[in-house]
Design a protein around this nucleic acid. Structure first.
Lengths: 329, 329
DNA sequence: TACAGAAATGGAACCGGTTCCGTTTCCGTT
DNA sequence: AACGGAAACGGAACCGGTTCCATTTCTGTA
C-alpha cells in the first residue's frame, strides 16, 4: 500500500493540514518540521500528483501531438519542447498519431480529458474538423509548422528560406532549373516554400522553372526524379526536402551521372546525415530547437492567459555544401 | 468553468451517483438515460480522468523513459510501444532524458509520483543507482535494450546478430578485418555484439582482429577510422552501428578510396537511410517494432501482476547491401 | 505587564469522481 | 392479493491531497 499524507500525519502526531503546509513551505515550527521530515524520509513518501492537481485545477502537463516520432524535424522539435518545459516544471505528454489525421482529433479530446494545461499540435495539415475540435475543448492550443487563422501558430520562415535558396542557385549561374515539391495541401512546404524559391530564382533572373510533385519519402522522390531528368539541358534541381534530395541523388547516381558535375542539387532540412552524403548537400537548416523553445514558452504563456502574438516565425541557416556548383553563364 | 458530474446531475435532475452509473454502464432506466444523455451532449461533458484514477488507483498511464528521441532505433521502438499501448487503452507518457543518466533516476521517481501503472526504461547502461531506485518505487519496471539481473528485460539478440555478421564477412574471404566498437560499459553493444562478431569470425577461420573504440556519433567514428586505416593490408571493417559505418565511409571517401573496392564495410542498425548511401550498406536490422510490441505487452502483464519471463530476446534480419565484396582467398 | 499581531496548528470543507448502502419501485410468481 | 427479488436511485463516504477558518500559542512593543 502507498503511504498517504494521512499516514504521515498519524506517524508524526500532527494534523494532515500541517504536513501539507510542511511540504509546501507554509508556517511550521522547526520542531514540527523535524518530526515530519523524519517520517517522510523513513516512509519514502511521494505525494500523489493526481490528488494535487485535482484540487489545484492545474496539472502542469502539456500535451504534444506529433505526426510521427521517427522524423528528424519532429524529434528535434520534440526534444527542444520537452527540455524547455521540464525547466519550467511542466511534464510533456507526447502523443504520436502515426500520421493518422483522425487520431489528431481523438488526441485533442483525450488530452482534454487528461486535463492537460495546454496542447501543442505539430501539424502537417489543418482541417475544418481540427479547428472545430480546438474550439470545443476549452484548453489553449498552439499549432506548430502550419499557419491557421484565429489560432496561435509558430511556423518556419519557409518563404524567406525558399527565396534565399532560389537566389543562391540562380546566382551560381544556373538557368535551367527544376523544382521537386510536395502537394499544395501542405501550406507551409507545398505553397510558401515553393513561392519563396520561385521568387528567389526570379529575383536573380530565372523565371522559367519546371516543377514536379513528389511524396515525402525517398522512394517516390527517386521515381519522380526519373521524370525530371527527361527534361533536357537541366543543370540544377531544387528539392523541397533533404529526403527528396537524397532520392534525387540516388537516381542520378544510379544513372551513372555525378553530383554536382552533371546536376546540382539543393534541399531543405539540414539533417545530420546530410553531412555524410558525398558530396555534402547544400541545404537550409531550420532552427528546430528555436522552434521548440518558442513553442514551450508560448504554450505556457497561453495557459497563464497572457497575450501572445498570433503568428511567430522561426529562423533558418543556409548551409553551403558541395552539391551546387558554379556554371559559367 | 468546466462542467462536472455534479452539474450534469443537477441539470438532469438526478443524483450524481446515477450519472456515474450511466457513464459506466450500471443499472439506469431508459427514461433517465435519455435525460442524462441529453445533458451530457449539450454540455460536452468530459469526465476528469484525474478524479477517476484517484479513486480507481489505476491511471492507465505507462511511462517510457528514453535516452533521446532523435535516434532511429529509439523512435521506432517508441512508436511501436505507443501504438500497442494505445490499442489496449493505455496512454504513453514519454520522457526523454537527453542522455543524462541522472535524469533517468529523476524520471523514475517523477513517474512514480504521477502514479503511472508501469515504466519502460529504454536503457543504454544500468547502474547500481538505477537498480536501487527501481526497487524503491513500488511500480513494475521493464528494461529494454540492456540485460540486468532480477529485473524484467527485453534485449536484442546482439550475440547472434554479431555472430551472423562475423561469419558472413569471413565467408566473403576477408582475413584482415578490423572492428570499430563502443565502450564496454554498454553491455549489449559494447560486449555482447562484439563477442558475437568475434566468435562469428572465428567460426569461419578469422581470429586475429584489430579492435577500436568509438563514440556513437559520426564525427568520432570518422576520426577513429583514420587510426584504423593506418593498419596495413586491411580489407574489411565491421562497425558496431550504422552511424559508425557512415563515419568510416566518410573518412574512406575523403581519402580517395572506395567502398567496397578498397575496403568492405558492415554495420548494425538498418536505418532507413542506409539504402540511400551508395553503396548500400550491409547491415543487421533489429526488429525494433517487435521489441516495442513485446515491451508494451510485457509491461501490461507486469502491472496486472502476471508472470513474465525475466528475459526476452527480440530478433533481427540480415540485410545484404553492396558494401562488402568477395575477396579471393 | 498587557495587548496586538503573527505564527502554529487542528478541524472541516472541498476538488470531481466512484462505490457502498439503504430505501423505494417494479415485476413476476404462487 | 401477498410476497420476494431485482432494478432504480439518492445519500453519504471515500480517494489523497489543499486551503479556509477558528483557536491556541508565541512574539514584540508600548
Amino acid at each position: 500500500m502507498n503511504t498517504t499524507i494521512k499516514d504521515i500525519a498519524k506517524l508524526a502526531g500532527v494534523a494532515k493540514s500541517t504536513v501539507s503546509r510542511y511540504l509546501n513551505g507554509g508556517h511550521v515550527s522547526e520542531q514540527t518540521k523535524a518530526k515530519i521530515r523524519k517520517v517522510v524520509e523513513e516512509t519514502k513518501y511521494e505525494p500523489n500528483s493526481f490528488a494535487q492537481s485535482l484540487k489545484a485545477k492545474k496539472t502542469n502537463f502539456i500535451g504534444v501531438i506529433a505526426p510521427t516520432l521517427d522524423s528528424y524535424v519532429t524529434s528535434t522539435v520534440l526534444m527542444a519542447i520537452d527540455e524547455e518545459l521540464r525547466k519550467r516544471d511542466y511534464t510533456t505528454l507526447i502523443i504520436s498519431t502515426s500520421k493518422h489525421v483522425d487520431r489528431e482529433i481523438e488526441s485533442l479530446i483525450s488530452l482534454s480529458r487528461q486535463k492537460v494545461d495546454g496542447i501543442i499540435l505539430i501539424a502537417t495539415g489543418v482541417t475544418e474538423k481540427h479547428i472545430e475540435t480546438i474550439n470545443s475543448i476549452q484548453i489553449p492550443v498552439l499549432i506548430v509548422a502550419q499557419e491557421v487563422g484565429h489560432v496561435t501558430c509558430i511556423i518556419n520562415d519557409d518563404y524567406q528560406a525558399g527565396f534565399k535558396m532560389g537566389q543562391y542557385v540562380a546566382q551560381k549561374g544556373h538557368r535551367a532549373v527544376a523544382y521537386i515539391g510536395v502537394a499544395e495541401s501542405d501550406i507551409a512546404v507545398g505553397q510558401r516554400r515553393k513561392q519563396g524559391i520561385m521568387e528567389g530564382l526570379k529575383s536573380a533572373g530565372v523565371s522559367d522553372v519546371k516543377t514536379f510533385v513528389s511524396q515525402f519519402d525517398l522512394q517516390d522522390a527517386a521515381r519522380v526524379t526519373q521524370e525530371v531528368l527527361e527534361e533536357s539541358s537541366l543543370t540544377a534541381i531544387i528539392c523541397a526536402t533533404d529526403t527528396i534530395a537524397f532520392g534525387a541523388m540516388k537516381t542520378i547516381t544510379k544513372l551513372g551521372k555525378k553530383v554536382p558535375k552533371d546536376f546540382s542539387i539543393a534541399g531543405f532540412g539540414g539533417y545530420n546525415i546530410s553531412g555524410v552524403i558525398h558530396p555534402a548537400l547544400t541545404t537550409i537548416r531550420f532552427k528546430n530547437e528555436e522552434t521548440g523553445v518558442m513553442a514551450a514558452e508560448t504554450i505556457i504563456k497561453l495557459t497563464n492567459g497572457e497575450e501572445v502574438p498570433n503568428l511567430q516565425v522561426s529562423g533558418f541557416d543556409f548551409i553551403e555544401g558541395e552539391s551546387v556548383k558554379s556554371v559559367k553563364s
